[in-house]
Amino acid sequence: MQEKIYQVAVGLIPGVGAATTKTLISYCGCAEQIFKTPKGKLKNIPGIGAVTVDNIYSASVLHEAESIVERAQKLDTQLLFYTDPDYPNRLKQIPDAPTLLYYKGSSALNPPKSIAIVGTRKATEYGRSVVRKLLEEIASYKPLVVSGLAYGIDIQAHRDALELGLETIGVMANGTNIIYPSVHKNTALKMLEQGGLLSEYTFDSIAEPMRFPARNRIIAGMTDATIVIEATQSGGALITAEIADSYDREVLAVPGRITDMASEGCNNLIKQNKAHALTSAADLIELLNWDITPSQQAHKHIILADLEEDELMIYAVLTDNEGIHIDELSWKSQLSMQKISSVLLEMEFKGIVKALPGKKFSLR
């Protein structure tokens, strides 16, 4: 519990964001040591100035963090620091991932398959029917369904997932102790038993406009693919799709008639080559290789079971990044260059990775 207090406290330090937190952790080793490292040594860390050091030594952040941890226990909410094994590994790979998540629910956040379904808040009957049909056709693959608990396509995805026995996560732009919009409270409560609610914002935080785009990066970052069912020319669904595309994650969009305003955003994503056209569940299944044979899947599980923790981190990054440079691989896996070189060599001996020209690597 003590280390958890320090982990929460890091995020409360004025002027210390995700990048600075990761720098401090890399030099100090853990959150607690950030607060126990002498000021002189902290000032020698690149990017850490005197003001930040003074803020680190402020006792108020530790007191506030202790209150948050105590409240989390009362509200049955997990506090997931980015070094926690339960933190979403897919999300950990993006450069602007939050260092701390508030999670209330029953589902694991590192499932074998995970998709985001987003769309307009003013969903048409066609859009709602597409959500239902898609989820019915992929239900046997048991993907985790992630969305934003908003009106329209989002809530449709959550409700259909629940009815079909799929686990579903709602990523929110407010504290997990607040259901927004409140009319979705009954659905949100069901999700706690068959999924969960996730946020980077502390308790009692309200859903301010600027927080929704930030929320969308979590939706895009913690899933293998973002599926846009319906979207107008602007809005949160397109922001999520753009973010997913920038993360090199798969984006799919359901095409619609050129006269339908609710399909303008989807049609444009496809036209700009930022999304694959989704005309049936088969498109998604083929794109994400869900149709891998049982023998191939069993072989993959055997390989993963034999990997050490550092090897699993590298494997996860290489799964989403073909032919990645060793520098970027080091950054995304949070392993030092010295460490990653030795681990990659061992993985080469095991026949799991292969070296490419230009200090790049990929899975075999």
Rank of each mutant, 00 (worst) to 15 (best):
L312V: 07
I352A: 03
K339E: 14
E200G: 01
K142N: 08
E70S: 13
G165M: 03
E230D: 00
H301T: 10
I206V: 11
L197I: 02
I326Q: 12
R159Q: 04
L304E: 07
E208Q: 14
G148H: 00
R128F: 06
Q2Y: 13
E137P: 05
V146Y: 01
D204A: 06
A237V: 02
V10W: 11
K36Y: 15
C28G: 03
L252F: 13
L80V: 06
P181S: 06
Q334E: 14
V183L: 09
S336E: 13
P143E: 01
T83L: 14
P112R: 12
T226C: 11
V130D: 10
F361A: 05
I117K: 03
L318G: 01
T21H: 15
T120A: 11
H301I: 09
I94Q: 09
A50L: 11
T120M: 10
N273M: 10
F361W: 14
I340T: 03
G196R: 01
A277K: 12
S26D: 07
G256V: 07
A207Q: 03
T176V: 15
V171I: 04
T120G: 07
L238H: 10
Q272F: 04
V51E: 10
S362E: 10
M347W: 05
F361V: 06
I153C: 13
F349K: 15
V69H: 11
D54K: 15
G265Y: 12
P112V: 04
A161T: 01
K142Q: 11
I218L: 07
H325L: 04
K190S: 02
R71E: 12
C266T: 08
E70K: 15
A108N: 14
K22N: 08
L356R: 04
Y141F: 14
G47E: 09
I243K: 02
T21D: 11
L304G: 01
D291H: 12
K36Q: 13
D76C: 10
F81W: 15
V146E: 02
E346W: 11
P98L: 12
D320Y: 14
C266K: 14
L197M: 02
N89W: 08
T259D: 15
I314R: 06
L307T: 01
F203A: 03
Q78L: 15
T187R: 04
E208R: 13
S246P: 02
R71V: 00
E3P: 00
M191Q: 00
Q194R: 04
Y180S: 05
I340S: 06
I206M: 11
N110F: 00
S333W: 09
Q338T: 12
I179C: 06
S234P: 05
K41N: 13
I45G: 12
R159L: 04
S199W: 02
N289E: 13
Y315R: 08
T23L: 07
L356C: 04
G152W: 01
M347Q: 05
V145I: 11
T232D: 14
L80M: 11
A157W: 01
I243P: 03
